[in-house]
């Protein structure tokens, strides 16, 4: 933005308006909320039975503790699901505003592009981690998977540190959508590769050794491993801090790149006058 700078506090206060708007919109689709909860349960049910045929001896230890496949995969599903849903919502939110014809209505208000982007996803940034916690609770209660109670808080902190990464990737995807209209395919493929090789569903040891090396700098793998160590092994705050020291810079850089990409995409749209086109 050029000219007079917007008051950051006043700008951030607008986020509650976006939150209310999206909460009211989602509440108007009650069936969709129930369907989402059902899909969480059905996903857990499938992996519960898959775990019955997986030899626990082949599952790597987490935080020094032996575990079952259902406990192992639950954390992977929780994190990769958070990434998939968060990303889908982040990407679609701008596209949806374009389709609905509301993007230009938002852009003619005295609101910065960053706040419009953040506001458009603030509901999901809160809802998606909440949904992840619900998933963990369903598995824990419904399928008798016991997580270490002392690991809940460190695991949630790790999850919170992962959210800027999701937001950053989502912002890059949004910028692609704004610029290319259908620019999410490559990003979707990249995210799949990162998730598939993160150890979410299978131990990384099954892959070639270089995949294991890459997993050390893959934020998804770092998050999943860190959360498993806390929830399954109760590794404690020292291990959590080690994970956070790796994860926070990765998330921070991704978020900055994402916001920069979105800003450049918006500037290009303003120059070309094609913001409302889809």
């Amino acid at each position: 933005m050029t000219g007079a700078q917007a008051n950051p506090i006043a700008e951030l206060a607008k986020l509650s308006a976006f939150l209310r708007r999206d909460l009211l919109t989602r509440l108007s689709y009650r069936t969709a909320i129930l369907a989402d909860l059902f899909s969480l349960f059905s996903q857990a049910l499938i992996f519960y039975y898959v775990s019955k045929v997986v030899n626990p001896a082949r599952i790597p230890n987490s935080g020094g503790q032996r575990t079952t496949y259902i406990a192992y995969v639950t954390v992977g599903i929780a994190v990769s699901g958070l990434l998939a849903i968060g990303l889908a919502r982040l990407v679609n939110v701008i596209r949806q505003e374009q389709f609905m014809g509301t993007l230009e209505s938002l852009m003619v208000t005295p609101t910065t592009a960053s706040v419009i982007l953040l506001g458009s996803v603030v509901y999901d940034l809160i809802y998606v981690p909440f949904r992840t916690v619900i998933f963990l609770v369903i598995v824990s209660i419904g399928f008798n998977v016991s997580f270490v109670a002392s690991g809940y808080v460190p695991a949630l902190v790790i999850l919170a540190a992962f959210m800027p990464f999701v937001w950053g990737i989502g912002s890059i995807a949004s910028a692609c959508v704004l610029t290319f209209r259908r620019g999410t395919g490559v990003l979707g493929f990249a995210t799949f590769v990162l998730t598939f090789t993160s150890g979410a569903y299978f131990p990384v040891s099954l892959f070639p050794s270089w995949v294991g090396q890459l997993a050390k700098i893959n934020p998804i793998a770092v998050t999943i491993t860190g959360m498993r160590e806390q929830l399954i092994g109760g590794a404690g705050w020292d291990d959590a801090l080690t994970v956070l020291a790796k994860l926070i810079p990765m998330s921070g850089i991704t978020l900055l790149l994402g916001l920069l990409a979105f800003r450049l995409a918006m500037r290009r749209e303003r120059r070309l006058g094609t913001l409302g086109l889809y």
Binding site: R21, L24, T25, S28, Y29, M100, G101, T102, E104, S105
Partner: peptide, 8 residues
């Protein structure tokens, strides 16, 4: 027409 949020 469609410049509003139709569900609210």
């Amino acid at each position: 027409d469609r410049t509003f949020y139709m569900r609210i």
